[in-house]
Simulated scan of single mutants.
Amino acid sequence: MSNTAEWQTISKKGLWTNNPALVQLLGLCPLLAVSGSVVNALGLGLATMMVLTSSNIAVSLIRKTVSDAVRLPAFVMIIASLTTCIELLMQAYTYELYTILGIFIPLIVTNCAILGRADAFASKNPVLPSAIDGLMMGIGFTLVLLTVGAIREILGSGTLFANMHLLFGELARGWTLTLFADYPGFLVAILPPGAFIVTGFLIALKNIIDHHQAQRAAARKEKPVKGNKRVRTTGTIA
């Protein structure tokens, strides 16, 4: 397999076929807890993506020097160190958002998706494929977070991109889109049950799309076979 084909396969797995949130169902605790708005989802998603990518690179670099006896503790220490760095950066530059996300930033250390990719992929592959794997898994997780956050914010508050200045500064204070004027709000969408419902619908939608694509692929494979049989039968009758 060429490098380009390998990277495309890794990217497809991270974004769709092996998405950590929709397929592996990892990291659901922060996904369900802080995805009440786009800014919260984006903040946590970016933090997770940076830790995931950096930890994959670090684990790949030391994969040949760490023994099996201390492999997992070493991975956890790397992830914890990188999470602390991200936490300090958020305290320095996005403090209000950091206080909103609260304990879920330090809990990135316990995110099974990060440790899982470090153990299953980065510890067995070179640096570049490991970096791409971490980046794509992080992007896939962030996209799911953003989708859930956008749906919950629209249904719960009738707005989109509210409070984006918490992440991007004063430049983004006017980014709020009010989709429904005098919207009374839909409380369930903002509460944890709304996160479960929206995530469940997204998982179901992905399964439907995958099933439809599998049916189309099977139909394309069967058509030439049926055509060949029909030609041979006609020849025999003649």
Rank of each mutant, 00 (worst) to 15 (best):
S81D: 01
F121V: 15
F141A: 15
I114W: 05
L143M: 13
M77F: 12
M77Q: 10
A118Y: 08
I139E: 06
S130M: 01
A120W: 11
P129N: 09
I100C: 00
G140C: 07
C85V: 14
F141W: 12
L101R: 06
L89Q: 10
A120R: 15
A113Q: 11
T94D: 01
T110E: 00
C85I: 14
K124L: 14
R117F: 03
I114K: 10
M136P: 11
S130G: 06
F104S: 06
Y98H: 13
A122Q: 05
S123M: 11
P129V: 05
L89M: 13
A80S: 13
S123A: 14
M77Y: 09
G102W: 08
I114P: 11
E96Y: 02
G140R: 05
L97C: 03
N111L: 00
V76I: 13
N125Y: 07
N111P: 03
I114V: 15
F104N: 11
Y93A: 10
S123N: 14
I105C: 03
L115V: 14
I105H: 05
V76T: 06
I132K: 04
Q91F: 14
F104Y: 14
L128E: 10
G140W: 03
V76M: 10
F104A: 04
A131H: 11
I86C: 05
I79H: 02
A118S: 15
T83M: 04
I108N: 07
I79G: 04
Q91S: 14
Y95A: 08
I103G: 04
S81K: 02
Y95L: 07
D133W: 00
